[in-house]
Design a protein around this nucleic acid. Sequence first.
DNA 1: GTCTATATGGGGATAGAC
DNA 2: GTCTATCCCCATATAGAC
Lengths: 218, 218
Amino acid sequence: MKILTEERHTTRARILVSAEALFAERGFEVVSLREITGAAGVNVAAVNYHFGSKEKLIDAVVTRHLVPVNEERLSQLDKLEKQFSGAPIPVEEILKAFLSPVLQHIASGEMSEDLFKKFMGRLIGERGYSLPVGTCSLFAVMAGRFAAAFQRAVPQLDEKSALWRMHFSFGVMAHTLTNGETLRQLSDGRSGNPSTETLLGNIIDFCRAGIEFEGREL
Amino acid sequence: MKILTEERHTTRARILVSAEALFAERGFEVVSLREITGAAGVNVAAVNYHFGSKEKLIDAVVTRHLVPVNEERLSQLDKLEKQFSGAPIPVEEILKAFLSPVLQHIASGEMSEDLFKKFMGRLIGERGYSLPVGTCSLFAVMAGRFAAAFQRAVPQLDEKSALWRMHFSFGVMAHTLTNGETLRQLSDGRSGNPSTETLLGNIIDFCRAGIEFEGREL
DNA sequence: GTCTATATGGGGATAGAC
DNA sequence: GTCTATCCCCATATAGAC
């Protein structure tokens, strides 16, 4: 799943790699083009030559990391639907298809685990999910298909509830990966140091119970 | 729970009110002191006179909204502990004490609902929970007491799991309130327009199931 | 307490030589 | 494609008159 592979030396690629690290660490708005190009060892003017503007550079960085994760989600759901050929897929499996591509992206080495967590946090919190045009429809398709899968898996769920419980689940993951360190500080270390994989397992348990719960509907 | 009450006309108060709205809408870093003082109808230099620096103004704004919410959480938990006098408190009640003070703060009119949601998102996503010194210990106490209450309510939970499941629950709330609009867009309106109160009810159901779930521990 | 004026520094973008 | 130099804008913070 390496995205840049053999082109790591080109100016364009050097800018992307430096930019995403700085964006993750300190935020999209605060990091200046001068810092990015300085860290990349290229000229200030190169960003505008290769990307057109700072905003388009941000779009390129975001797209580069989000699109593969979402495509992997869809591909895993495809596999499950074939495997269960029309029968409802267990909630736990759907959740795995939804959450584990993040782990895979981290494992791919395209971005360090620490950095990717921070990157996710910035993306959600600072830019409020304002996605690059062109990636929006991919997200909409993904959300629709996963909500539908949840609905088939839990018969009493209506479409609205399925959408919201999916949203809740994504919230657990996003917030946990992004702000796990905060819990460690608040609890003075008593929350321990579980690996991301362990944590995702617990998130899946938590969300499965919440999704399968037979309660009021919206 | 009005915080400013009769002082809304003072320069200091006018700055606070303008600042928090702009911060919520567009982010702490991007908003300039010129915008804030312009909107407040006071002079640029007034911020530095009354607060010392932009960073200290941010601290004041954050403290002003977070401290009352957390104190209300603790006060509601106090009440529950008295009411159940030593016996375990039902998970649903603990969750209400944890989540509903946000609703109350919105209802207090201190900040509009729309704005407060955005404000929460900025706080978590842009500042990564970096709390003003002086509010940290309040948060630590709150987290510790709520985790302990969850642990008493669900006997098979160890301390670590209680802390994490509390964290998961907070994640659901934060992410849902902050990014509910995104789900509406992604689902092309099919997620409907539930009120914040309805939504919080559903969040409580979802989290209760997740917290009471008897599964693997960390 | 509040104002104007200014010091000092940094930002994004571009023109034009190489 | 890459560089230098520069345009023009805006930021925070402060000094000092009122």
